[in-house]
């Protein structure tokens, strides 16, 4: 409860600080650079949930633990949500800064691929009737998709030059205004907190659904002969 109130207050502080405390970065039209405090954390959460979903999938395949599959599923759902948010906020910025809503900049390409993977993941889940097969297939697909990501990192930036601002907007490099950096890191924290909050809500809800269908629970003494992994 305290943590939730903290997240609420912290996010409000970040919103105020993003507009009042931090300075607008030079080299951007008007105040558009303030998108940094919202867009980048959204993209970060989208990536984080992709990672968590993959970890949940791995645990599910190793242990056949229902909770792990619930984690993978809810992380994927939230990932899709934040992916859409990041795409929308990025698009608005792209229109203001670069003149068009969509430019096929490498990061825009990557996020579209991420969206397609999430879409495919849910399409697969809805197409498999048997609940246990559904979970196994979804987990396998999620791992396969994750394996292709490093190739994207290799391949995509080569097609077109990135329009994304690097130096002044990348906290890993020098050149970011210290005030901006503070608010940006705070915002990452706020968004991660919000993500954990949402994730736990979704997990509890899935748990409740699972209680109504008892056959999902009893899987402890499965036949494990010869399944050495």
């Amino acid at each position: 409860m305290i943590a939730k109130v903290l997240v609420t207050v912290w996010m409000a502080i970040i919103i105020v600080a993003a507009f009042l405390y931090a300075n607008a970065a030079v080299g951007f039209p008007g105040e558009t650079s303030r998108i940094l405090f919202f867009h980048v954390p959204q993209a970060w959460v989208a990536t984080l949930s992709f990672l968590i979903s993959m970890i949940g999938s791995c645990i599910y395949l190793a242990r056949r633990n229902l909770k792990a599959d619930n984690l993978a599923l809810s992380a994927a759902e939230l990932g899709l949500l934040f992916c859409l948010l990041a795409t929308a906020s990025g698009s608005i910025f792209a229109k203001a800064a670069w003149g068009s809503f969509w430019n096929w900049d490498p990061r825009e390409t990557s996020i579209v691929i991420l969206l397609m993977i999430y879409g495919a993941y849910f399409a697969l889940r809805s197409a498999v009737g048997d609940p246990e097969k559904r979970r196994i297939f979804a987990a396998v697909y999620s791992i396969l998709a994750f394996v292709t990501v490093p190739f994207l990192v290799f391949v995509v930036p080569r097609i077109t030059a990135s329009l994304h601002p690097e130096d002044t907007m990348n906290p890993a490099r020098p050149g970011m205004d210290p005030k901006t950096l503070k608010v940006f890191l705070g915002s990452l924290l706020a968004y991660t907190g919000l993500f954990i909050w949402l994730l736990r809500l979704r997990l509890r809800l899935l748990n409740l659904e699972g209680m109504q269908e008892p056959e999902f629970g009893a899987r402890e003494n499965m036949d494990r002969v010869g399944e050495e992994q």
Partner: peptide
């Protein structure tokens, strides 16, 4: 088919 519970051994 995987049983809900129990095992088969040969």
């Amino acid at each position: 088919v995987r049983p809900t519970t129990g095992r088969v051994e040969m």
